[in-house]
């Protein structure tokens, strides 16, 4: 222990902090998702208005899969960011790519929610719709947070090793986002 350098300690602390943060997010999303499961299990009828009626014209589920791909792309880029580090002089392009994918994801979430609302499918209409808004909205918010973090890493002027460490932290977060999104999509569309 006595020989542990300060940077090593900072690295351990950062790693522990990130895992703890992820655990906290998992519990938060877990509470929302278990609420969804409980409501759905206790409801005799579970209508999914985005599949029927006016919303059927727009294949929202397909759009969700596109967004899943963007998230997957973001994870891949964050892995590269973590694995290779970034040249100090140039733009940390992987981080920018993560930011772009995240922004596209959030934009689609907002767009779809706005489109549904314009069709009269607002959260107050039914519990299934309310669940749809809350679950997708929560993931969108968390992705927005990750996007800001990715841009932050891109803009920060720190040594390559430090940036790589932050990239590794970011990568864990984006992996979590992918898992949460797959859970959401699976819970809303496949079950």
């Amino acid at each position: 222990m006595s020989t542990i350098a300060l940077s090593d300690r900072q690295g351990r602390a950062a790693s522990a902090g990130m895992w703890l943060f992820i655990a906290s997010i998992v519990m938060f999303y877990g509470a929302l998702f278990s609420g969804y499961v409980l409501l759905r299990a206790g409801s005799p009828v579970w209508e999914t208005p985005w599949r029927t009626g006016p919303a059927a014209e727009w294949p929202i589920a397909v759009d969700h899969w596109f967004r899943t791909m963007w998230l997957g792309f973001a994870v891949m880029q964050s892995r590269r960011l973590a694995g290779e580090g970034v040249a100090i002089a140039g733009l940390p392009r992987f981080s920018w790519l993560v930011g772009l994918a995240g922004t596209a994801f959030v934009w689609r979430c907002v767009y779809i929610a706005g489109w549904l609302a314009s069709q009269g499918l607002v959260p107050a209409m039914s519990v299934p719709l309310a669940c749809w808004y809350v679950l997708t909205g929560t993931v969108a918010l968390l992705v927005a947070g990750g996007t800001i973090a990715a841009v932050w890493v891109a803009l920060e002027r720190v040594p390559a090793a430090q940036r790589a460490r932050r990239g590794a932290m970011l990568q864990r977060y984006w992996l979590l986002m992918l898992v949460l999104w797959l859970t959401t999509v699976g819970g809303l569309y496949l079950v």
């Binding site: 997010i25 938060f28 929302l32 039914s126 808004y133 809350v134």
Partner: peptide, 20 residues
């Protein structure tokens, strides 16, 4: 976080008119 999740639901019930 469980209470935060519950608070989000209740806030939606109060502000957005949902029925969680």
């Amino acid at each position: 976080p469980a209470l935060q999740g519950a608070a989000v639901f209740q806030l939606m019930d109060r502000v957005a008119g949902t029925s969680f």
